[in-house]
Design a protein around this nucleic acid. Structure first.
Length: 502
DNA sequence: AGTGCAGTTGACTTT
DNA sequence: TAAAGTCAACTGCAC
């Protein structure tokens, strides 16, 4: 008798609670990965993500082989694949991790659950991160996550006894309808690359994390770059949390303590946001606060959408970010917030269309984080005050030397530094704008003002606040109340603790 | 030397 | 991890 271990977004053997569980049954394991063509047809799926998956699966297969084990790969509908395998091999149970994915994987999992019930086959799903399934409200969430992160991870045994069966070759991206999407500077997938990113971050790259993470140039090295590994599960969040904790306990100096604390906070926020999608999968498709539904045209202005996607808005810093994203599959947090903000406010584009483009462009696309952030930066949550980024100011603040902007906008080579973020103010703009580089698609000031007024009008409308209050009840992060010092002034809180409201 | 004043800075508020 | 506006305190300078 065998159990099926269904690998999903958990492409590793270390700290793999589902593997640990299935091993406890002491039966041969059918290690399965299902390539689902329909999943890769979804509007949030892309070539670059599939490429990362290919590399990660190759690594996983090798790790299994080193333990005398086989990875069975099948291409097709999950229920059909599982049904065929169970029929042929008489499997006893299905074991996997809980997945908090997009609406498509949620629906697929419901079909799998229904199929398993019908066959009388137990499907054991276990958590692999701090997200808590079927939690009511957010009370106790933080301590549940802390407990999970404190548990010692299981290490895979030296030998894993698997059951081999016919395996499909991994489809080529083109076979799934995925064509190259402009990625040219890839981040390598697979467990080995993930482990390397983690250790190099903790050894040296992360030292100036706090200062450098918002810079589009320095951030590429100073940020951990673990995001695609966490998204595909080549590393577990717990591994990252515990490795960071180990370094924190060494009490390193030289800015490290701030960096590591800050990084831990982000790892926690990661689970916090994924929990939102777990609790309310509709946030992928509907405004969290319904009063914002219909505020922007649901069918976005095609020319504006195309200009934004292609890095041709005429706003240099936005264009540099969008072109860099297309080429690398990554942007730092602040730049993601800015490009989304510009799309939603200045360009007045509905978040669903722009969010799908960004989802495809992000190699590290993680639905829970993504749609929470997309709605936050579009002001449709009703929970926090709207944040309209000024792309000119961001360019001046985050790219003061202009190096990043110039790297991605070679056509601005002739523009003097002081006009780089606002080339339309340069007296020589005439020979540039409308020829090699577009005129700004909107006026930054007036577009921002119009958007702000429109959003505030919704906030002031009848019935807005009672609904907003209910949303806060459901979603707001609850921190343990700070114990008040017996006397003396309270320490000022660091921004880390104040940010990310929703 | 003290006063007036334009310009700057920073804390705080509003949108 | 917003930005703009407001206001009071401060600064440097002319007289």
């Amino acid at each position: 008798m065998t159990s099926i271990l269904w690998f999903k977004r958990d492409l590793r053997l270390d700290d793999h609670p589902a593997l640990d569980r299935v091993i406890s049954f002491d039966e041969p394991i059918l290690c399965l990965y299902i390539v689902e063509p329909d999943l890769w047809q979804q509007p949030d799926a892309s070539f670059r993500q599939y490429r990362f998956l290919e590399e990660s699966l190759g690594d996983l297969r090798q790790s299994l082989q080193q333990r005398g084990a086989e990875l069975v790969m099948r291409t097709g509908d999950a229920v059909a694949v599982l049904d065929e395998l169970v029929g042929r091999h008489g499997c006893m149970r299905l074991v996997s991790h809980e997945e908090t994915g997009n609406g498509w994987t949620y629906a697929r999992d419901k079909r799998v659950a229904e199929w398993a019930r019908g066959r009388g086959l137990p499907w054991i799903e276990v958590p692999q991160c701090g997200v808590v399934r079927r939690i009511v409200g957010r009370n106790g969430w933080q301590s549940a996550r802390d407990d999970f992160m404190t548990q010692p991870p299981a290490h895979p045994p030296v030998r894993i006894k698997t059951m081999a069966t016919a395996s499909d070759p991994l489809p080529k991206a083109a076979d799934l309808g995925l064509s190259p999407d402009g990625i040219c500077l890839t981040q390598r997938g697979g467990r080995a690359a993930g482990v390397e990113r983690l250790s190099s971050f903790l050894q040296h790259r992360g030292q100036h994390y706090r200062r450098a993470m918002s810079s589009p140039l320095e951030g590429a090295e100073a940020c951990s770059r673990l995001s695609p590994h966490l998204a595909f599960g080549t590393l577990s969040v717990r591994e990252a949390v515990q490795a960071t904790r180990d370094h924190q306990s060494k009490g390193r100096k030289g800015g490290w303590s701030g960096a590591l604390k800050s990084f831990q906070a982000r790892l926690a926020w990661r689970d916090h946001f994924i929990q939102k999608l777990e609790d309310q999968p509709e946030i992928e498709h509907h405004c969290l606060h319904p009063a914002y539904e219909g505020l922007r045209p649901l069918e976005p202005d095609a020319a504006r959408l195309k200009a934004w996607e292609g890095g041709e808005t005429g706003l240099p810093f936005v264009d540099a970010c969008m072109r860099s994203l297309r080429a690398t599959g990554w942007l730092n947090f602040r730049m993601r917030a800015m490009v989304m903000s510009v799309a939603s406010y200045h360009l007045w584009l509905d978040w669903r269309a722009t969010g799908q483009h960004l989802a495809r462009m992000f190699t590290d696309y993680e639905p829970g984080i993504h749609w929470s952030q997309v709605q936050m930066q579009s002001g449709t949550t009703g929970m926090n005050t709207i944040r309209i980024y000024n792309p000119v100011k961001q360019g001046l603040d985050q790219d003061p030397t202009g190096t990043f902007t110039r790297r991605w906008l070679p056509e601005l080579a002739q523009v003097p530094d002081r006009f780089l973020q606002e080339p339309w103010k340069w007296e020589g703009a005439g020979k540039l704008l409308g020829r090699s580089y577009p005129e700004p698609i909107v006026d930054v000031q007036s577009a921002a003002r119009a958007a702000r007024d429109a959003v505030w009008a919704v906030r002031k409308s009848d019935g807005f606040h009672p609904v907003a209050k209910r949303i806060v009840q459901k979603h707001a992060s609850r921190k343990a109340p700070r114990r008040r010092a017996a006397r003396g002034p309270s320490r000022p809180r660091h921004a880390d603790q104040m940010s990310f409201d929703f």
